[in-house]
C-alpha cells in the first residue's frame, strides 16, 4: 500500500483520519491539503512528504 509519508519523521497521512488539529477534516484528499499545512508531529511542510510503499 502506498501512502504519503513525512520524510523528516515518518508520520503517515491517513486520509480517513485527516488531521483535525491541523484543521484538515477526515476524508480530505492529499491534493486538497493546503501547501502551508505542516506535519503534525515534526512541523515539516507538505513538500517534505513523499509517496512511499508501506
Amino acid at each position: 500500500m502506498k501512502q504519503w509519508m513525512c520524510m523528516n519523521c515518518g508520520w503517515v497521512y491517513d486520509q480517513a483520519l485527516g488531521d483535525p488539529l491541523g484543521e484538515i477534516a477526515p476524508g480530505t484528499a492529499w491534493e486538497d491539503i493546503p501547501d502551508d499545512w505542516q506535519c503534525p508531529d515534526c512541523g515539516s511542510l507538505k513538500s517534505d512528504f513523499e509517496m512511499v510503499e508501506i
Binding site: 509519508m5 520524510m7 515518518g10
Partner: peptide, 10 residues
C-alpha cells in the same frame, strides 16, 4: 533528513 531516512518505518 539523512539520518531519518535510515530509520523510516518501512
Amino acid at each position: 533528513k539523512i539520518f531519518q531516512k535510515a530509520f523510516l518505518p518501512q
